[in-house]
């Protein structure tokens, strides 16, 4: 966790320092999707070589779907609540 946070913090600092270097920021933003594709490709390899994972793929899919359904439903419920009591009455 410390490594993750430190790297992120280092990036934020660099971003703050270089925020006027538009070209640099633009290039960084453009490389991001490619880094994500690379990351997911490698994650695919790691997951594919893992016997426990490949054995229970359908079970994992169901667990993932139930969790996302819960997360989406829960947040949408509170959003409805928030909209009703704070954002309505022409204030938005």
């Amino acid at each position: 966790m410390l490594v993750v946070t430190s790297i992120l913090a280092a990036g934020v600092l660099l971003g703050l320092v270089l925020k006027d270097k538009k070209r640099f920021i633009e290039i960084t933003g453009r490389t991001a999707p490619w880094i994500v594709y690379m990351l997911l490709f490698l994650l695919g390899i790691v997951v594919g070589t893992n016997e426990t994972v490949t054995g229970g793929f359908i079970k994992l899919g169901i667990q993932a779907s139930v969790l996302s359904a819960g997360g989406v439903a829960g947040s949408v419920c509170l959003a409805v609540f928030l909209h009703k009591f704070l954002f309505e009455k022409g204030r938005m």
Binding site: V3, V4, I7, L8, A9, A10, G11, V12, L13, L14, G15, L16, V17, L18, K19, I25, T28, G29, T31, A32, I35, V36, M38, L39, L42, L43, I45, V46, T49, N50
Partner: peptide
Amino acid sequence: AGLHPELWVLYVLLFTVGIGIGANT
């Protein structure tokens, strides 16, 4: 897979995410 290259790529991603946040205050 045992070398966990995805971790290094994650660190690069985190770094670029950080730059994006810092540049966008």
